[in-house]
Structure formats: structure tokens, C-alpha cells
């Protein structure tokens, strides 16, 4: 139950919208649920539906429309490389290919340690600093711009170290 687990956040979210329009809160609540569980579970959908007095089917429909919402489990970190036209004109495709080669995965796949899913995405409004990607995780979303394969691998190493550390700790 989001409202019980995150009372402050839920309250803040609902306050943004007129009380008779609380359906507007569906996207922020979905973000909250996703942050909580890594992806949006069926239970979370029902919970949000009940909170906003809409049908669970409608909640599912919204998740389905937007690419940033996940309704199934993926790698803990989703590395989303922009390969759209402006980035591609500056070598994004090659960057992604080499990165995948280094990680031993294909686009869309997750590294063998289950940590990083590598994806190709559409323009992220970072066209002048290609190659670039965003890292999505339960902590949020972070842009990494002007990347090289080395810098990207460095970041992944850092993540791996951090995860190992947190597992041990």
C-alpha cells in the first residue's frame, strides 16, 4: 500500500491536482510504485486504481502507453543509449555496438550478472553531447553525456563494485 508506505509523498502528489481530478496523480504514483518495487506489480496497479477510483484496467493501459513504466522485471540498471538521428550522426550506433561487444550482450539483453540491461532509445534531448545514455534505476534517472566506451565501462564497473559492496554489507 503506497499510501501507508509513503504517506508524505502520496500526500504531496495528490495535493498537486484539484481533488475532483485525482486521476491526474496516476503517473506520479506509478513512478512511486516503480521506485518501490523496481517495476509496477499487479498489486500496485490495484492499489493505485483504488486510490484514484479508477479501474485497474485503466491503470494498466497507462503503463502500456508510456515507455518509462515497466510492468515486468528487468535488470536493476537500465542503460538506455540514444541512437536517434542526431546522436547517430555522432557515432552512437558504433558506440552501442562496441559497448554491447564489451559486455557480451545484444541490445535489449541483460548482462550475465543480471545487473545491467542495455537498450537503444529515442532522442533524450542530449544531442549535442553524443554519445550519451541515461541510466535508469530505482534511484531515478541520470544522464551520462559525451561518453566513450571506456567511460561507460568504467561506470558499469563502479556499479558492480557498489552492488557487491552493498551485498556484502
Amino acid at each position: 500500500m503506497l499510501a501507508e508506505k509513503y504517506p508524505e509523498e502520496v500526500k504531496k502528489i495528490l495535493e498537486k491536482y484539484p481533488p475532483e481530478q485525482k486521476r491526474s496523480a496516476v503517473m506520479p504514483l506509478l513512478y512511486l510504485a516503480q521506485r518501490d518495487g523496481g517495476y509496477i506489480t499487479k498489486e500496485a496497479m490495484k492499489d493505485i486504481a483504488a486510490m484514484l477510483e479508477i479501474a485497474p484496467t485503466e491503470v494498466a493501459s497507462i503503463i502500456g502507453f508510456y515507455t518509462l513504466f515497466l510492468d515486468e522485471e528487468a535488470g536493476k540498471y537500465r542503460m538506455q543509449v540514444c541512437t536517434d538521428l542526431p546522436c547517430a550522426l555522432r557515432g552512437a550506433d558504433k558506440f552501442l555496438e562496441e559497448l554491447c561487444g564489451n559486455l557480451g550482450v545484444k541490445v535489449g539483453e541483460t548482462t550475465s550478472d543480471g545487473l545491467v540491461t542495455v537498450e537503444a532509445v529515442m532522442c533524450l534531448a542530449g544531442c549535442d553531447k553524443a554519445p550519451m545514455f541515461q541510466m535508469q534505476s530505482s534511484e531515478g534517472l541520470e544522464y551520462h553525456e559525451n561518453q566513450t566506451v571506456e567511460s561507460a565501462m568504467g561506470l558499469i564497473e563502479e556499479i558492480r563494485r557498489k552492488e557487491q559492496f552493498s551485498q556484502q554489507g
Binding site: M27, I62, T67
Partner: peptide, 27 residues
């Protein structure tokens, strides 16, 4: 107030944006 979309170019179109703000599919 800020309101976040969730990955849909069409939500830049003003009426889709409003639908999205209202908690619907951004069409």
C-alpha cells in the same frame, strides 16, 4: 507544480499533453 511524462514524444503535442496530465493515455 511540475508533472512528469513517462516517455512519449506525442505528449509534446498540446492536447495529448493535456490528456496525459489528466491521467489518461497521451493521445
Amino acid at each position: 507544480h511540475t508533472h512528469l511524462g513517462a516517455g512519449a514524444y506525442i505528449c509534446g503535442e498540446e492536447t495529448a499533453l493535456l490528456e496525459s496530465m489528466e491521467g489518461s493515455r497521451g493521445q
